[in-house]
Simulated assay, not measured.
Amino acid sequence: MRVVMFGYQTWGHRTLQALLDSDHEVVMVVTHPRSEHAYEKIWSDSVADLAADHGVPVVIRNRPDDEELLTLLKEADPDIIVANNWRTWIPPRVYSLPRRGTLNVHDSLLPKYAGFSPLIWALINGEQEVGVTAHMMNEELDAGDIVAQRAVPVGPSDTATDLFHKTVDLIAPVTIGALDLIASGQTEFTRQDRSRATFFHKRAEDDIRIDWNWPAEDLERLIRAQSAPYPAAFTHHRGKRLEVLGAVVSQNRYGGTPGRIFYREGDGVVIVAGADARTGRNHGLAITRVRTDDGRELPATEYFTSMGGYLTTHP
């Protein structure tokens, strides 16, 4: 089939590479300009450079809603558009233009975790598996019929970085498997159960700010979800920002006020956690490694030279 690819960052790069390696013909690529947004500088393999290296025409757009782009798409005469990590709304006159419509590739197990940063949100929420879904695009974001889907398990110590590497390797088989089904003439696919759908926003500074009212188990997953190269989860100590690079749920239960710097346990320093910490029924979060506001990384047992005091959400 003749394919136009819409995509950005490493997800789009992997999709384009899969298409170039397949029997399908890539006739045009549409991608976003480079961004200085913190999350968009991560996994930033260039779709434009890969397309140019293979002699594929490239169009750079923030939004795909202008008349010039529509004309170029019509001239490209695609059988299908394939999109992955396209960051803005694609209007109906674009996604419905190809003869076979538009296939969107999304890094979650739809209908759950539509929208943005699905791997990070899924890890924070303790999901047992994550994956990649290829679905037909319609007027609702990430809501079209599912053509192909694959899952991988989430391990007990997996970070968001680990899950990225697990799922990015699914892009090629899911995308090409879905295209082959469509090329074979299949038109009936799996409807999404919209009663199970969840939709998540882009992550920002407040989403990585540690709230000590959360249970320690949730905070431990938040730390893993904000693994390098993502911005680290942070708290404040004595008015200064303190990033938490490593933590585990404490073995023992600790009572008191959330955020209290309480006790050395193993290789960590336990912080009281949970909105009901006063009951003494909760485990704490044992911080093992931190980064100070001047960039120093050190074990928590070296940073916290004495117990007492509090970690706070704000300075």
Rank of each mutant, 00 (worst) to 15 (best):
T161G: 02
L97C: 06
R2Q: 01
L181K: 15
L110W: 08
W86K: 10
R241S: 04
A204G: 15
T292S: 06
H283D: 00
T159K: 06
V30W: 13
M28G: 13
F199V: 06
I80C: 10
N104E: 12
G101K: 05
G115H: 11
V47H: 11
R14S: 04
G295E: 01
L245C: 05
L16A: 04
D180N: 13
R221A: 02
F116E: 13
L181R: 15
S250T: 09
V272F: 02
A76I: 11
A228L: 06
P92D: 12
S227R: 10
E302T: 06
V272D: 01
D107M: 13
R2L: 01
M5W: 01
Q226P: 00
G115A: 12
S108C: 07
S250G: 04
E40C: 10
L73G: 12
S184E: 13
T292C: 04
F200I: 01
V29T: 15
T15N: 12
N104M: 07
R264F: 08
T102K: 03
R209L: 14
W89E: 15
T159F: 07
R296D: 07
N213F: 05
D158L: 08
D218M: 08
E129D: 13
F116Q: 13
V3I: 15
E220C: 01
D293R: 01
N282A: 02
V152L: 11
L20Y: 04
T71S: 15
S35P: 11
N125G: 01
H13Q: 02
R253E: 08
V30A: 08
S157R: 14
P64E: 10
A247L: 05
F116A: 14
N138C: 04
A143T: 05
H237L: 07
R100M: 12
T292Q: 03
L109K: 07
P173S: 11
Q17D: 14
R150E: 14
R260A: 14
R209Y: 00
F189V: 07
I120H: 08
P153T: 08
A275G: 00
T102C: 15
P92S: 14
V152Q: 04
T71I: 09
A228H: 10
N125K: 08
D211N: 13
A76P: 09
A273K: 00
A122L: 03
V27H: 06
E25H: 13
K240R: 15
I146T: 03
F200C: 01
G177V: 05
H37R: 15
T15M: 12
R241T: 05
V272Q: 00
Q186Y: 04
D211K: 03
G274F: 04
A273M: 00
T10I: 00
L110F: 06
L50R: 15
T190V: 10
Q226D: 09
D193R: 10
F6T: 03
I208H: 09
V29M: 11
G126S: 08
F304P: 10
A151H: 02
P111S: 07
K166V: 03
D45F: 08
V4G: 06
D293S: 10
K74Q: 12
A52G: 13
E297V: 09
I223D: 03
